[in-house]
Amino acid sequence: MNALLVDDSRLARTELRHLLQAFPEVTVVGEARHAQEARTLLHELQPDLLFLDIHMPGETGFELLASLETAPHVIFTTAYDEYALQAFEVNALDYLLKPIQENRLTSALSKARAKLMVPAPVAVAVAGPEAEEAPVAPLTEHDQVFVKDGERCWFVRLSDIRLFEINGSYTQIYFEQHRPLIPRTLQHLEQRLDPRVFFRANRQQIINLKWVESIEPWFSNTLKIKLRGGGPEVEVSRQQSARFREMLSL
């Protein structure tokens, strides 16, 4: 993947270039200090990937994108978190807050890799509604995710989500006082979430272990868990109760 770095801070560009050295599949083909310079280099270099700051002298990163007829895949790099929703509205792959963490950069590049290297679709039988999706990097509790339910949007840190629960053909997310629905299965979420933090309690629910308030024995050697912050009590299946004890006992 050929990448262009656009940031008015030379130090920020140097730090990002240094971080990208850990990813041999990424080649930094150029750097730009502002939108006008970036526009010229985009035309000349035709990069696959654009690491783009938002606040720059002259035009913002959003204004640069709006002026382009075509653009590479974009990963925003910024010190400001209030533009996250706007970033996803312009189909950004990811939104990295400075100082950029290596695990977040890894996740962003995995998304870029999936977009750029997925083979052309072929006619095959699929196992379920999500089988056609390209694999993406696992998420940590420190990652922030974009959640949209109808006309409402959130940019929420996974550590703030205490429960995922099946609701019809959707999954309901519990964080703060919100209960949005997303078109994802628990199986898909379980594959993406850190198993050291998010535990599949039963066929209907995944809990955040750091939100557990109390645990009590329940019927047939199972467990019942109460979470801080409200929401339903969670009855852990017999198989998962045994796994829970084994995983968390000294």
Rank of each mutant, 00 (worst) to 15 (best):
S169L: 11
A123I: 09
L248N: 06
L52Q: 02
V156I: 15
Q239Y: 07
L93S: 03
L5K: 10
F219V: 04
A71R: 15
K210H: 14
K210D: 13
D194P: 03
F146P: 00
F155E: 04
A22P: 03
L227E: 02
L16F: 02
L163D: 05
S9N: 06
E69H: 12
A71N: 10
E133M: 14
M247H: 08
L96W: 01
L20S: 11
D160N: 12
E151T: 12
R228E: 13
A125T: 14
E102L: 09
L41T: 00
P217S: 09
E233Q: 08
L250P: 14
E235V: 12
S110K: 11
S237E: 05
I166Q: 13
L64D: 03
K111N: 10
E37C: 01
A108S: 00
R104L: 08
P24W: 08
L65T: 04
I166P: 00
H34T: 00
S237P: 06
R152F: 10
A92H: 02
Y174I: 02
F51R: 00
L139F: 14
A32H: 04
R113D: 12
I100D: 02
E165C: 07
V122E: 09
R243F: 08
E216L: 10
L116K: 12
E132D: 13
V28Y: 11
I100G: 00
M247N: 06
E216W: 02
Y83G: 08
V212G: 02
V6E: 05
N167V: 10
V29N: 03
S159K: 15
P217W: 00
A3C: 06
A38R: 04
V136R: 13
K148M: 05
R17Y: 03
L163C: 07
Q187A: 14
E216T: 11
R39G: 13
V26S: 01
S67K: 10
D143G: 03
A112Y: 01
T60F: 00
E69D: 15
Q144L: 12
D194Q: 14
R33L: 04
R157N: 15
G230W: 02
M56V: 00
A125E: 15
L116Q: 04
A137Q: 07
V124W: 01
I173K: 07
A84T: 07
V124D: 04
A120I: 02
S169E: 12
E151V: 12
P232E: 11
Y80C: 08
Q205H: 08
E82K: 09
A123P: 04
L68V: 07
N208S: 10
S237H: 05
M117E: 14
R243L: 13
E176P: 03
L186W: 09
G230Y: 06
Y174E: 05
E59R: 04
I100V: 15
A131W: 09
P121T: 08
H18I: 07
F88Y: 13
R238N: 05
T222Y: 03
Q101E: 15
R10F: 06
P47C: 09
N91T: 12
P135K: 11
E63V: 07
Q172I: 05
P24Y: 04
W154P: 05
D194G: 08
L11T: 13
A87Y: 01
A71M: 09
S107V: 10
K224S: 05
Q36A: 12
Q172Y: 01
L193K: 09
F219Y: 12
I166V: 15
K111E: 08
R184V: 15
H178Q: 15
G58K: 03
N103S: 13
N221Y: 07
